[in-house]
């Protein structure tokens, strides 16, 4: 009964459930898309003139510079929503029902993850659209766009599994909304909004080695043709590692609860 085909079928069923839920409860999605859009506009129009000059360009150069950071921030914001949704789900009887059924247990979590990743990719697409409208001019080829999509999907998977684990760990939905908060700050404490070499030593050290920086550097390189170096490999490793650990953590927490 536990053949991979049935597990896949259960996961597809749970994903459909999750997508329907997201459609029925759109206010969360809207809020999660709008928050990074507002930050993008704030940074470009309020701070962009000065900050753009600081990196040796103008407002347009700054739009180009912060797009990768904003994309990651959008995913991190969405992770908050996922953690809340998972925590809420766990308090409801429906999950107890799933546990008493002969289904693939992980499918309950997989449904959340796939639904959330779809939600995040849509949110990022909206962001890129708005960035293009306000002067973002990437020079990426089709292959590079594909690579960006791939890396952002990996990243979305990583933060989502982490969010699922955090949501499962949280005693209440309120607590779950706080747990992923540090993720939203990581683009700031990296190369998301200003180059790391403008930071004081300790912060710079953290900024250069934290996982978001190589991911942002890779996305930036693919979109704008800046140097990537070994960032791509490090970024992929971070995403794979966070995904694997979070998956195991989430699965164990779910099985034990």
């Amino acid at each position: 009964m536990n053949s991979p085909a049935l597990a896949l079928r259960d996961s597809a069923t749970m994903t459909r459930r999750q997508l329907k839920r997201l459609l029925r409860y759109p206010s969360m999605t809207v809020q999660l898309v709008i928050t990074p859009v507002i930050i993008l506009l704030l940074f470009v129009y309020v701070l962009g003139g000065t900050l753009g000059a600081g990196i040796g360009g103008g407002r347009d150069a700054y739009v180009a510079y912060i797009v990768p950071g904003i994309l990651l921030m959008a995913a991190a914001t969405a992770a908050t929503g996922t953690a809340v949704m998972v925590a809420t789900d766990m308090t409801e009887g429906i999950v107890a029902r799933f546990r008493t059924m002969r289904i693939s247990r992980a499918s309950v979590l997989t449904g959340h993850v796939v639904g959330a990743v779809v939600q995040q990719l849509l949110g990022m697409a909206v962001l890129i659209g708005i960035a293009l409208a306000i002067g973002f001019r990437p020079n990426a080829t089709a292959a590079e766009w594909l690579a960006v999509t791939g890396l952002l999907t990996l990243f979305a998977l990583a933060v989502t599994w982490l969010a699922v684990a955090l949501g499962l760990r949280s005693p209440t939905p309120e607590a779950a909304s706080n747990a992923p908060m540090p993720l939203i700050l990581l683009p700031f404490l990296g190369s998301g909004f200003v180059p790391t070499d403008s930071m004081p030593t300790v912060l710079r050290w953290f900024a250069e080695y934290q996982p978001f920086t190589p991911i942002m550097e890779t996305v930036r390189g693919l979109l704008l043709g800046t140097a990537i170096g070994d960032s791509a490999a490090i970024a992929t490793a971070w995403c794979a590692g966070i995904t694997a650990l979070s998956y195991l953590w989430a699965k164990r927490t779910f099985d034990k609860a």
Binding site: M1, T13, K20, R21, G93, A96, F98, R102
Partner: peptide, 30 residues
Amino acid sequence: RGAIGVTGQYSAVDKLLTGEENLLLMADLH
């Protein structure tokens, strides 16, 4: 699990889905 059904004290329905969708969800899971 394959032989039992459980209706708990706290309603185990997905409140965001319609009644019909809840039943179809169960049908898919079976």
